[in-house]
Design a protein around this nucleic acid. Sequence first.
DNA 1: CGAAGTTTTGACATCGTTCAAACAACGTGG
DNA 2: CCACGTTGTTTGAACGATGTCAAAACTTCG
Lengths: 236, 236
Amino acid sequence: MSISETRHNVLPHPALLRAGGVAPKPERPVLRLLTPGETIGREDEPASRLYRIREGCIALCGLLPDGRRQITDVLGPDRSFGRAQAGPEHYIAQAMTFTEVEVLDTSTAPNLAADAAQAALARLRHHATLLGRMTAAEKTANALIDLARQFPRKGRSAGGSQSFTLYLTRADLADWLGLTLETVSRTLNRFKRSGLIDFTQAEIVVLTNPRQLKIMAAGLSNPDQMSIKESQKSHA
Amino acid sequence: MSISETRHNVLPHPALLRAGGVAPKPERPVLRLLTPGETIGREDEPASRLYRIREGCIALCGLLPDGRRQITDVLGPDRSFGRAQAGPEHYIAQAMTFTEVEVLDTSTAPNLAADAAQAALARLRHHATLLGRMTAAEKTANALIDLARQFPRKGRSAGGSQSFTLYLTRADLADWLGLTLETVSRTLNRFKRSGLIDFTQAEIVVLTNPRQLKIMAAGLSNPDQMSIKESQKSHA
DNA sequence: CGAAGTTTTGACATCGTTCAAACAACGTGG
DNA sequence: CCACGTTGTTTGAACGATGTCAAAACTTCG
């Protein structure tokens, strides 16, 4: 439940892999490179500021005074976010891997700001429904589908299966889904045993049965096959 | 968990209490009167539409295909909301009592729309943290404080106590807080026994100790005094 | 009074948490 | 190359906060 550090066995920063370690500037957008765990968009920055992710992964976190953390959204490439106006909690945006963001301003991109706000609202509403009314399995299925769409790996979608890069640790997933990291681990392995997903390395997950996963994510699955308890078969 | 009807022992519509049952039109805003349970802002309305509550109470609800309901926000007078852009769920705005809303348009009130979106985002982020990371007691304390601020009753704030009109049923509160109606009832009565709140009629609640309630809402209380289990005193 | 809706309360079940330990992957320094 | 520390993951056992089921007590209204 407490603040977890980001994965340490990190990948090299993609931007550094480019020519000479210098990021290219196509037009002349203001860019900013974040290392895993680094935060951005704090209260001391201008309220009109807006960020767009070019590469990497950002989590928006709410922090309770006693250390409990709630990740309210996970953003991948092309998603935008603004400076959070403070509520009761402390809010931060944290990089989950080496991340490159474009720094914009509401005044220079008014439409983008409005669209970003609308999109954020729609996602947040869905996430609230997930947090308040879904089981661990349903939550996990939703997370997998969302992440697969945001962080797809090319060339790996044969036979209806998709694969994606998982930048989040089990603890991060737990803080996103309102679960504990143990429950996330158990649910994920349960899915694996059921043939819904597959993973060997920590960073790469394959959705082997996205169809069933989507049914589960929508809350349409048989509750029996979803509980955490290992199915101690009741022999009919 | 399923869709509940709104309270039936309803109050007379405030607007109808005014001269001759005709609502006055100070400037000439477009008004709309809603009866309890009535919905507004569905997908068939223009996306640019915006509503502002003048009197009453509106709940924004997300519905899962199997009937599970998540109320994502509860709005009182002066709060605004727009048409929800559809996500995976079905979204509706539902009146919790006789409610009067002002019908606006994004184009005629651009600032209001942006402000409403920002406010909605901030509240929703906080609510996500509540749903994902708070106990039943913490959730309930937050709800009471929020409702007391939005639906205050005049003349009743002696000795640091406030009172408010509760338009929501236990089932509504449960769907807002991600709990069951039984848990809400137990928690509320526990607060009552602890001297934190008081209520006799269903519609009127008094915060007799808002200070302690706020501490609890922030998650700073001793977990011991918060569990649902009736405190079967461990005699020191 | 009877009907309908709502709230309260009790007994019990269970999903998810908590606590604990082992395992795995990776980087570092000797 | 290997022991070791660190971080993350998996798994088991037991517990407990909350859910589920059921019934009684209220409240309001016709």
